[in-house]
Simulated scan of single mutants.
Amino acid sequence: MKYASEFRDPKAARALLAEIAATCDRIGATRDKPVHIMEICGGHTHAIFRYGLDRLTHPGIEFIHGPGCPVCVLPMARVDECVELAERPEVIFCTFGDAMRVPGHRKSLLQAKAAGADIRMVYSPLDALEIARRNPAREVVFFGLGFETTTPSTALSIQAAAREGLGNFSVFCNHITVPEPIKALLDDPDMVLDGFVGPGHVSMVIGTHPYDFIARDYGKPIVVAGFEPTDLLQSVLMVLRQIEAGRAEVENQYARVVPEHGNPVSLAAIADVYERRPSFEWRGLGEIDASGLRIRDAYRAFDAEAKFGIGYGAAQGRTVVPEAEGCACGAVMTGRMKPTACPQFGKGCTPDMPLGALMVSSEGACAAYWQYGGARGVAAR
């Protein structure tokens, strides 16, 4: 447990909580006039509720759950396109387990698998690459999903397929980027945000400078954070101290993992394989300019959109599919609503019968509230 237990030390946590409370008192943060801090990453949301930090911190702290769950932000139309690909008889469709139960307009991938589609859960795109090697007569499509954290592994797999000339392997690319949706939220006049806890795993790849605009252009502090309880408490304290001092900077609490300039090998692979899409649709946010990645023409043979004429590669254009009636995933995912405020939470939407992705994704806010009770969310169950 070395490098983990010391970040779960109760004595250190109590000291940080006391400092947070004292700082909140000094800046006048109260339950009625809280400091709104958005944790961008869904992994942070789950850690906050797993360790009860929402109940332990000063009532002047209001955690706002951000759009940092890559499964959750996918619009329903993309799930439908996955099912359409998976139901082709020549296709073996490979996906991370998180995406299996996300409902589409017609069905989820899990339901498509139960109906006979050849859908396989993998832990890495390299697993899908190996399936392609072993099944040369079948088309193997990997569901490329995630923020900058998982983007390099998909890029490296495409590069490997190109070197091998593996023509039966392709990627349905749904990789997205963190800074652009944060800018969209900051541009929303109805959003009240005082600071950010920045994503740790994403920042391990891209570094800290892509967040400079948050402090420079919007005057909001952001602290890149780790995932243990004292990581998060220290990061919240760092945000509060910036607010108290009238500063707005990008700070790195997670320096033991996150380098300032990111991972050069990963960034090189991303730059080689991908380019920015003109725009990409996000659940709850709509189309956001340059927020998604697509596969460059040099690797077009491994682009499932081009190969199968689907999604943004469809000649007739994409179909916009509305969310299920009563589903508030968009409002929850963008921090406009707490999960327990959704009238379907725990009633029409449960882990067994979900209406939206946030209830079944391992990083979804609704799943965190359901599993850990959330901020006074137990009563809603």
Rank of each mutant, 00 (worst) to 15 (best):
91 V>M: 11
96 F>S: 03
98 D>A: 06
98 D>I: 07
98 D>R: 10
99 A>N: 15
100 M>S: 03
100 M>I: 05
100 M>N: 01
101 R>V: 04
101 R>L: 08
102 V>Q: 11
102 V>R: 09
105 H>G: 15
106 R>N: 14
106 R>D: 14
106 R>W: 11
106 R>V: 07
108 S>V: 03
109 L>R: 01
110 L>D: 15
111 Q>E: 15
111 Q>D: 10
112 A>L: 07
113 K>V: 07
114 A>V: 12
115 A>W: 05
116 G>N: 11
116 G>S: 08
117 A>P: 01
117 A>C: 08
119 I>M: 05
120 R>V: 08
120 R>D: 02
121 M>P: 01
122 V>P: 05
122 V>Y: 02
122 V>T: 11
122 V>I: 13
123 Y>A: 13
123 Y>C: 13
124 S>K: 08
125 P>T: 10
125 P>A: 09
125 P>L: 09
125 P>S: 13
126 L>T: 15
126 L>W: 12
127 D>F: 01
127 D>C: 03
127 D>E: 11
127 D>S: 10
127 D>T: 05
128 A>L: 05
130 E>G: 03
130 E>R: 15
130 E>D: 15
130 E>V: 13
130 E>F: 02
132 A>T: 04
133 R>E: 13
133 R>G: 03
134 R>E: 15
134 R>K: 15
134 R>D: 12
135 N>E: 12
136 P>T: 06
137 A>H: 14
137 A>D: 15
138 R>G: 01
138 R>D: 06
139 E>C: 05
140 V>W: 02
140 V>E: 08
142 F>T: 00
143 F>S: 08
144 G>C: 08
146 G>V: 07
146 G>K: 11
146 G>L: 09
146 G>N: 11
147 F>N: 13
147 F>A: 12
147 F>H: 12
148 E>N: 03
148 E>G: 02
149 T>M: 10
151 T>Q: 09
153 S>V: 14
153 S>H: 04
153 S>R: 06
155 A>K: 08
